[in-house]
Design a protein around this nucleic acid. Sequence first.
DNA 1: CAGTGTGTAACATGTATAGTTACCTATAAC
DNA 2: GTTATAGGTAACTATACATGTTACACACTG
Lengths: 139, 139
Amino acid sequence: MNRDGRFPRVLHVVIYMALRGRVMSSTEIAQMLTTNPVVVRRMLAGLRDGGFVETSKGPGGGWRVVKSLDAMTLRDIFDALDRPGLKIADTARYHPDCPVEAAVNVALAEVDDAVTDMMLTRYATTTLADIARAAKTIS
Amino acid sequence: MNRDGRFPRVLHVVIYMALRGRVMSSTEIAQMLTTNPVVVRRMLAGLRDGGFVETSKGPGGGWRVVKSLDAMTLRDIFDALDRPGLKIADTARYHPDCPVEAAVNVALAEVDDAVTDMMLTRYATTTLADIARAAKTIS
DNA sequence: CAGTGTGTAACATGTATAGTTACCTATAAC
DNA sequence: GTTATAGGTAACTATACATGTTACACACTG
């Protein structure tokens, strides 16, 4: 459990719930992900703030997907999760006046920016509906 | 000190040493990076194994760059460091038979592979000499 | 008001990098 | 050979972060 695994787990849950079209409690989702309800609430909190899911309390309550899978891209979910695990290489800040350090930082930042840009662009072109269709092809 | 900061630090040191063309002890390098000699030896161990630097013991000993900056790319150093911090998104392995999880993993892996490929390709096209030239332009 | 749900704070756990201490071996200078 | 200086490395601590867990407050349904 080293790195951030929220992204695939959240995608799994959202697509699953949307396909089922029914409310799921945090406890149900937790069993599905072999974790516990608090972790689920934390994971999905960003999606609620982003307007992709809604919650209701009390008996019969839980989580409900309120957008079409066509209207949600990987990018939307990634952003709603606050871009987990992004930032590929750090930059050093030990010698603000050293031109070598500055040049290293520039070179790494250029690659980093290009790579991040590409990733976000590709995420933006894939909808959750695309993944759901692929899942149906598999099964 | 959260993420892996070896890459920029190692680049800084190697370019600096090559430009100076002299041996530097782990202690000297440590002062330059505001850390301590053991961390430096750990950081540079991979570069020695990769044949980019050599070490000598005893008085007057230390680290020496043995390849031309033209002959070292960002990719070379990145690989010598064992690709620090790579792996952007994890894949979930909770339900081996779930087509949704499988489809999610495929979609994420596709982006991940493309992005990693692009990063390594761009790293491979930049030599440390390029960075050294950029540093001279800055100063 | 009893039962079921979310919302969250507080704390525990697992893992990775970084930093530190201690001790080993190798080598240059004398 | 002795001494000082260098790297090599194991073992430990510190820090950061995602995850897991416990406990409790609050909200809604019947």
